[in-house]
Nucleic acid binder design. Sequence first.
DNA 1: TTGGTACAATGGTCCAACCAATTTCTGCAT
DNA 2: ATGCAGAAATTGGTTGGACCATTGTACCAA
Lengths: 242, 242
Amino acid sequence: MFDLPPLQATARDDAVLNVLADFVMQEELKPGDRLPTERVLSERLKVSRTTVREALTRWEGLGLVERRQGSGTYLKAAVSRDMLHLPLTFASGNDFESLMHTLEIRRGLEAEAAALCALRAGPAELELIRQKLETMEEAFHSRAGMSSDEDWDFHQAIYRVSGNPLFEQIISAMHELFHRFWEHPLGVRDFGHASFPYHRTVYERIAARDAEGARSEALKLIATVEADLRRGDANLKRAGNR
Amino acid sequence: MFDLPPLQATARDDAVLNVLADFVMQEELKPGDRLPTERVLSERLKVSRTTVREALTRWEGLGLVERRQGSGTYLKAAVSRDMLHLPLTFASGNDFESLMHTLEIRRGLEAEAAALCALRAGPAELELIRQKLETMEEAFHSRAGMSSDEDWDFHQAIYRVSGNPLFEQIISAMHELFHRFWEHPLGVRDFGHASFPYHRTVYERIAARDAEGARSEALKLIATVEADLRRGDANLKRAGNR
DNA sequence: TTGGTACAATGGTCCAACCAATTTCTGCAT
DNA sequence: ATGCAGAAATTGGTTGGACCATTGTACCAA
């Protein structure tokens, strides 16, 4: 008994996605570009708009695409037909414990990314990191601490220069989780105050092509953040909140 | 420049998913269970079936749910309201480059997990790791190399003992990706041959409560795997395949 | 130049129907 | 009773058309 015919059962939106992926490749659309209207796609592909929407919804859920009402649908990541999607979803509550867990993941990744940076960064990439560093330091000094956006830019530059796109994907997804904390619970403590000096040392080790040194400095950096958070949490508990 | 108002655009299907997640928790639905009909949900939630479908499509894309026409929609994974979605997408998942990328991620995580293990493993956990190690060594000796299953068990034990569930979840998802390589492309080379001795050194550093030592040994372990793979790839290219 | 207003384009939601696969029920033959 | 083929109901998949909410743009007036 062969059971081979799972082909062509009813999989229109899968087909739509394949065709769309072809289209994106053919038009050489890059992240940020706008792709055709749902109505246009519906007409061109000879399927209903609903079907197009379901397909795009799937892509949106995978973070490949972003929809802006009244404006259009925009590409958020490179797309090709033979892509492997690996949607990880796991329960991760809003408690302090979960925050620490994500931080541990980040520590491992950040260290590795910094090490790879030291090995792979060319002059241009190095310059990019240096620029982000200085922007961050400037913001830090002018606003007396709290440079979370610029701080994030710096780290993101490292992930990008590492030459491995997975770093950025994983970390940026976790970044959302981080924000869930920074909004609500522990007040906006003076993060990064303790970690601040390590940003420069990380950069220096990278610039010196010292992979192990970069890894080590990155570890120290995250360790200070962790210590800050633990202290904040302790204060909170001592105050009796929750 | 404040850019605070991303609040409350129009997000019915997000709301639908939240309510649905609540429902799943409330009814204690487990993977395999069937959840209410689209039509029922539409009626109960007072939204159109289209909206319900878009929401479910998102879940389906993330692998949380499976739809079977004529039968129903079935839960495929545990669902809770505060879930962290981490959709990774690998470009062209069959080239050597992608394999290296996943390996770099694994190196960062493995090192961190080993370090945490050294800090947190109790006597019982330590014994578990030791047992996995010996099982692996035994398999290695009896079958002259190639002990991938037992090898995996060993590493998984480390992730588990690390006390951070995220490690196991991320890595085990990537493990699938690894297998796609080990099946087809580079022949089943004598992996782990070079990495073999490091398994024991990792364990010894953990047992000695030496976090940095454990991290360092774990790094060496992955490095040998990487070197093996690079060698295999070079051989393949020299042979003219592709 | 500035500021507002009308209008068109676009994604978001809804409805009502029909199609296709699956499951369940029904009733007949054994 | 039992077994099984066919009808009927159930359920996800698709369609077309309509309307709403938001955004972008062109145009006009101060």
